[in-house]
Lab assay of single mutants.
Amino acid sequence: MEVRTIKVFTTVDNINLHTQVVDMSMTYGQQFGPTYLDGADVTKIKPHNSHEGKTFYVLPNDDTLRVEAFEYYHTTDPSFLGRYMSALNHTKKWKYPQVNGLTSIKWADNNCYLATALLTLQQIELKFNPPALQDAYYRARAGEAANFCALILAYCNKTVGELGDVRETMSYLFQHANLDSCKRVLNVVCKTCGQQQTTLKGVEAVMYMGTLSYEQFKKGVQIPCTCGKQATKYLVQQESPFVMMSAPPAQYELKHGTFTCASEYTGNYQCGHYKHITSKETLYCIDGALLTKSSEYKGPITDVFYKENSYTTTIK
């Protein structure tokens, strides 16, 4: 009895394709271990004539594949690729409408935090270190965002349907971005203890939790000093293409032309909904596939993004 075979390709990165001759009487799992086709788990399936010449994702289970996976995804987590594939199996079914010149995501599976993050990423200057993220990001900007969303979920250790947080998501993504040249110098002034300067680099240099107003941050924000008295913390120097200011959701007025974009969060910790506000020729609110415009805006804002380049204080 002759062994019926077909020729397929296996890959971990969709760049390096490895030619395989597979036995049609055995499952993919018996031949390769966990195997995925377009995100779908085909591990328990036997090869079919229609699979001839198709590319299958496999887990990096030998040295060659491990090197290829690390170079593309910059992670050695053995569960990463499987999590990416199972997320992709959902995100490829989502709709990605162009809204006001940006790629958004039609609401499904509690994905409003991903839509808000995706919209924000198209408006701030950011370059990702893992080629996987950078490639998928370019495709997302062009309207094909399924891979990018699935990668975000995998890097953030999230599953489809789980509630997510924009600030946490951005923080994970910033860790995989090139923020080497970003720098922030802060000064804390206390009447009792004097003053202390701190220099922050990388992710810490672009994120701040405690106030939404970048102007206020430049002037000074009140913080408790270690001595128990009130101290003032203010920005001395900022070198970065953008800054992200966050605070627990509270009524906040966004003035046209003073910011790049913002995240609105309605609801409580267990259950809520994100919308995205962007400042173009007027203010726009993007909620999944829905767009509304207004000249002014007041609502429960939790993150505001500002364009920056270089700032030095005039406070002496």
Rank of each mutant, 00 (worst) to 15 (best):
residue 142 A to E: 11
residue 177 A to P: 01
residue 115 A to Y: 01
residue 76 T to F: 14
residue 314 T to M: 12
residue 195 Q to L: 12
residue 22 V to T: 08
residue 172 Y to S: 14
residue 302 T to Q: 07
residue 126 L to Q: 08
residue 127 K to M: 05
residue 132 A to V: 02
residue 218 K to D: 05
residue 189 V to F: 10
residue 275 K to C: 06
residue 314 T to W: 09
residue 265 Y to H: 09
residue 297 Y to I: 06
residue 57 Y to H: 07
residue 235 L to C: 05
residue 305 F to K: 05
residue 297 Y to R: 07
residue 304 V to K: 04
residue 228 G to N: 09
residue 268 N to K: 12
residue 126 L to D: 04
residue 261 C to G: 01
residue 60 P to T: 10
residue 271 C to D: 15
residue 313 T to S: 14
residue 301 I to F: 04
residue 161 G to D: 01
residue 259 F to M: 01
residue 166 V to P: 03
residue 155 Y to K: 00
residue 46 K to C: 11
residue 29 G to W: 07
residue 107 W to Y: 15
residue 255 K to E: 03
residue 95 K to V: 15
residue 33 G to R: 00
residue 201 K to H: 11
residue 200 L to F: 11
residue 290 L to Y: 07
residue 269 Y to A: 15
residue 119 L to A: 08
residue 105 I to S: 00
residue 120 T to K: 04
residue 298 K to N: 12
residue 127 K to P: 05
residue 100 N to S: 02
residue 128 F to T: 02
residue 309 N to R: 13
residue 108 A to Q: 13
residue 142 A to H: 14
residue 127 K to W: 15
residue 66 R to W: 07
residue 157 N to I: 02
residue 299 G to L: 06
residue 202 G to I: 04
residue 127 K to Q: 14
residue 255 K to Q: 07
residue 237 Q to H: 12
residue 4 R to M: 12
residue 163 L to P: 15
residue 175 Q to D: 08
residue 205 A to D: 05
residue 48 H to M: 09
residue 164 G to N: 00
residue 305 F to S: 07
residue 12 V to E: 04
residue 81 L to M: 12
residue 63 D to A: 15
residue 270 Q to E: 05
residue 172 Y to F: 13
residue 236 V to G: 06
residue 137 Y to Q: 03
residue 19 T to D: 14
residue 24 M to C: 02
residue 49 N to I: 15
residue 243 V to C: 09
residue 8 V to K: 00
residue 33 G to H: 00
residue 21 V to G: 09
residue 71 E to D: 12
residue 291 L to K: 06
residue 216 Q to C: 11
residue 89 N to S: 07
residue 139 R to L: 10
residue 161 G to Y: 04
residue 20 Q to M: 09
residue 91 T to L: 03
residue 73 Y to W: 00
residue 7 K to V: 09
residue 242 F to C: 08
residue 107 W to Q: 14
residue 43 T to W: 02
residue 3 V to S: 13
residue 76 T to G: 10
residue 66 R to H: 12
residue 198 T to G: 05
residue 208 Y to T: 03
residue 79 S to I: 08
residue 55 T to G: 02
residue 262 A to C: 03
residue 201 K to M: 13
residue 55 T to C: 08
residue 163 L to Y: 14
residue 151 L to R: 01
residue 207 M to N: 06
residue 257 G to D: 13
residue 277 I to P: 05
residue 286 I to Y: 07
residue 257 G to R: 08
residue 80 F to A: 01
residue 178 N to V: 06
residue 190 C to P: 02
residue 209 M to H: 15
residue 81 L to S: 01
residue 255 K to C: 07
residue 290 L to S: 14
residue 214 Y to V: 11
residue 4 R to L: 09
residue 198 T to K: 07
residue 152 I to A: 15
residue 103 T to K: 01
residue 261 C to S: 02
residue 56 F to P: 00
residue 197 Q to W: 09
residue 223 I to N: 06
residue 257 G to C: 06
residue 86 S to E: 15
residue 274 Y to C: 12
residue 259 F to L: 05
residue 282 T to C: 11
residue 163 L to Q: 13
residue 313 T to G: 13
residue 72 Y to F: 11
residue 267 G to K: 11
residue 160 V to L: 04
residue 2 E to D: 09
residue 154 A to T: 10
residue 88 L to T: 00
residue 9 F to I: 09
residue 292 T to H: 10
residue 103 T to W: 12
residue 80 F to L: 01
residue 261 C to A: 07
residue 154 A to Q: 00
residue 274 Y to M: 02
residue 232 T to H: 04
residue 195 Q to N: 12
residue 260 T to C: 14
residue 62 D to A: 06
residue 120 T to R: 06
residue 285 C to R: 10
residue 103 T to V: 00
residue 103 T to R: 06
residue 280 K to I: 07
residue 292 T to S: 12
residue 230 Q to C: 06
residue 66 R to G: 12
residue 156 C to S: 05
residue 227 C to H: 04
residue 82 G to E: 12
residue 59 L to Y: 10
residue 69 A to K: 04
residue 157 N to L: 00
residue 193 C to W: 04
residue 178 N to S: 09
residue 169 T to E: 00
residue 56 F to G: 00
residue 87 A to F: 02
residue 150 A to G: 05
residue 165 D to Y: 11
residue 159 T to E: 14
residue 166 V to L: 11
residue 308 E to V: 13
residue 218 K to R: 07
residue 92 K to A: 12
residue 79 S to P: 00
residue 298 K to D: 06
residue 11 T to Q: 01
residue 156 C to W: 00
residue 73 Y to Q: 00
residue 2 E to R: 10
residue 281 E to P: 03
residue 187 N to G: 10
residue 95 K to S: 11
residue 249 P to G: 12
residue 209 M to T: 06
residue 231 A to M: 07
residue 308 E to D: 11
residue 33 G to C: 00
residue 71 E to L: 12
residue 296 E to R: 13
residue 57 Y to Q: 08
residue 243 V to E: 14
residue 150 A to V: 01
residue 212 L to F: 05
residue 260 T to L: 05
residue 94 W to L: 00
residue 61 N to R: 15
residue 210 G to E: 03
residue 291 L to S: 14
residue 297 Y to D: 05
residue 33 G to K: 02
residue 157 N to S: 08
residue 23 D to L: 08
residue 302 T to M: 04
residue 185 V to A: 06
residue 235 L to K: 03
residue 158 K to Q: 05
residue 311 Y to M: 09
residue 233 K to P: 05
residue 177 A to N: 00
residue 203 V to D: 04
residue 260 T to P: 09
residue 223 I to Q: 09
residue 3 V to K: 10
residue 156 C to V: 08
residue 65 L to H: 15
residue 109 D to W: 00
residue 227 C to G: 02
residue 297 Y to T: 05
residue 228 G to L: 06
residue 158 K to W: 02
residue 80 F to P: 00
